[in-house]
């Protein structure tokens, strides 16, 4: 369980010499095994929030606890980072080694694992993301989606409990996006990992158990995707994407009230229309 308690983060912006409140009194509890999506605009604080979960940033006020360990506790830094893995936006800027398997081994090597165990973990992790066939390839020869899967494998090899995805699909094409989302879903549903996905894409947020909507450093809405997306007007005012099907549902609901306003998939809509 990750417990974020009244977290405020203030940083000093050098170019304008101003103090900026990136996070403003955020409280949130992430349960084990949960899949959480965090939605919001650039600059709303969602990436800053993500970086607090594995002590890349520390709170100005408030606390973040990972399995009851305070992230501000320097002695536990490496335990926390091993337990909370992180996948970043730019697939190129997080692969370190010159071959896929060496890259996946990077994390385990850093925590001083035995070579034989590293081998085993690397093979398992590559299998899990479906990249075994590429283990000797150089990273720059892979597609964006494949690079992200290697990055995910690099995290998995450390056997974390939580994985934080910081806009992992923002720079990918539809094919790459599908690959990453399928992998994310599998890790959550089959391997029982807790997933926090920071994203702009509502198609991704729909897959989560809970959606957190952020604006100007504050959490303004936390609920199931169905409840969040049925608030079409609020989301539109925030200029966030609404799934087209939900937008249609809202429009139809105004005319025919037997059509629910919180429809999220094509299948549900077909059923509602052809009942």
């Amino acid at each position: 369980m990750i417990k974020i308690d009244h977290l405020t983060h203030i940083y000093h912006k050098e170019s304008t010499n101003q103090e900026v409140k990136a996070l403003d009194d955020v409280s949130l509890t992430i349960q084990d095994g949960e899949h959480i999506a965090v939605l919001g605009h650039n600059g709303c604080g969602k990436s800053t929030l993500a970086k607090h979960l594995n002590a890349l940033l520390l709170p100005t006020e408030g606390t973040v606890e990972v399995d009851a360990v305070d992230t501000a506790n320097e002695a536990d830094l490496w335990t926390i980072r091993q337990s909370v893995g992180m996948v970043f936006q730019n697939p190129d800027n997080q692969l370190i080694a010159t071959t896929v398997e060496e890259d996946v081994a990077f994390g385990p090597e850093n925590i001083g694992m035995e070579p034989l165990l590293i081998r085993q973990r690397v093979d398992e992790a590559l299998e899990l993301v479906g990249m075994t066939a590429f283990k000797d390839k150089e990273p720059h020869l892979l597609s964006g989606g494949q690079k992200q899967r290697v990055a995910i494998a690099g995290i998995i090899a450390m056997r974390p409990k939580y994985i934080v995805f910081d806009e992992p699909t923002a720079m990918l094409d539809p094919q790459g996006r599908r690959e990453v989302m399928e992998t994310m879903q599998r890790l959550n549903k089959e391997e029982g990992l807790t997933v926090v996905n920071i994203t702009h894409f509502m198609e991704e947020a729909v897959l989560a158990d809970r959606v957190v909507v952020m604006e100007q450093g504050k959490v303004i809405l936390v609920d199931t995707p169905r409840v969040v997306f049925s608030q079409v007007d609020l989301l539109k005012r925030m200029q966030l994407d609404v799934p087209p099907i939900t937008e249609l549902a809202a429009l139809l609901h105004k005319e025919k009230n037997y059509i629910a306003a919180d429809i999220m998939t094509i299948e549900e809509m077909v059923n509602a229309l052809c009942h």
Partner: peptide
């Protein structure tokens, strides 16, 4: 090709099939 059609177009296609 794997490009797909816009979401609402696929809804209409499904309805058409029904």
């Amino acid at each position: 090709i794997g490009l797909g059609v816009p979401m609402l177009t696929s809804l209409l296609l499904e309805l058409h099939e029904k």
